[in-house]
């Protein structure tokens, strides 16, 4: 671990030096995106490994579309800079990345390596942190709060810790003033206003902006935007430290959960509401 931290401290010099107050002319935003199996398709476990099957076509996780939109808006407001995507996926899968490139991101770094199969959150974060450094100077790193398929929700903070950066999770709104990041952060009770110097890692709550639909022009342009396809060797990551080998976990049991007994299902004939009223009375709710 000491080695990893030392390396990230060394590599941190690649990240943007803070710019002087009020002189922010353009900003570069890195957005971590995940390409996932279509949530509309029923999920299945690989019977050999008990991990989620990810061999079909992958799409951009909808959760990440908010971060991409937020990044595009911030770059727009800053009056320059660009949005770079960072992703990790099997088999050099790019279809989800193309969607985000079509929205307006400039380029992408994609990490694909057989040794990454079975990666948990910590392995994923180690890979993404290195890929972010490869992506070039970043003023801000955005992620979703959690992915729609794995939903561990710890990757944003892990990336921030690996890069030794401040972080703000569950952002509803982001503004940049000079070198200061201002975020409305979702809380149990409402929201907090949180400030941090840049560069920083921010996770974006789903639904807080309206992700743009890629235009036809955007879709055409995305086909030729650069995707830097790299392996673990390119990132100088030891394959035994990630994936199955470095996961440090073992599945001991996969079982059917206790299922609910089937209830009464009826077609509404105009009097369906009465069945509800009857049940409410039976349950003494009314």
């Amino acid at each position: 671990m000491a080695n990893l931290v030392a390396e990230s401290e060394f590599l941190l010099s690649v990240l943007s030096e803070p710019q002087s107050q009020g002189m922010l002319l353009g900003m570069n935003v890195v957005v971590c995106v995940k390409q996932i199996p279509d949530p509309a398709d029923p999920g299945a476990l690989d019977p050999q490994t008990n991990t989620l099957k990810r061999d079909g076509k992958l799409i951009l996780d909808e959760s990440d579309s908010y971060g991409v939109e937020m990044a595009l808006q911030l770059v727009d407001t800053a009056g320059g800079g660009e949005v770079t995507l960072v992703s990790m996926a099997p088999n050099g899968e790019v279809s989800g990345l193309r969607t985000a490139l079509a929205m307006g991101a400039a380029k992408a770094v994609l990490v694909s390596d057989e040794a990454l199969a079975g990666s948990g959150a910590l392995s994923t974060s180690k890979v993404l942190a290195k890929a972010i450094l490869r992506a070039g100077e970043a003023d801000l790193i955005l992620t979703a709060t959690e992915s729609s398929d794995g939903y561990t929700g710890v990757v944003p903070e892990q990336i921030a810790e690996l890069l030794q950066l401040p972080s703000i999770t569950f952002a509803k709104e982001i503004t940049i003033e000079g070198n200061t990041l201002k975020v409305q952060r979702q809380t149990e009770a409402g929201y907090d206003e949180v400030e941090s110097p840049l560069p920083a890692v921010v996770s974006v709550t789903a639904g807080v902006v309206e992700p743009r639909y890629p235009s036809f022009k955007g879709i055409m342009a995305a086909k030729s935007k650069p995707v830097d396809q790299v392996t673990l060797a390119d990132l100088e990551i030891d394959p035994s430290s990630v994936g199955w080998a470095g996961g440090g976990q073992e599945i001991v049991l996969v079982a059917q959960a206790e299922s609910r007994a089937g209830g009464t299902i009826i077609e509404d004939d105009g009097e369906g509401f009465q069945k509800i009223v009857d049940l409410l009375a039976e349950l003494k709710v009314i």
Partner: peptide
């Protein structure tokens, strides 16, 4: 959990 897991290089089981 995210910060700690990196600091002590330990994975996390979530949910």
């Amino acid at each position: 959990a995210g910060r700690l897991s990196v600091k002590i290089d330990a994975p996390v089981i979530t949910n």
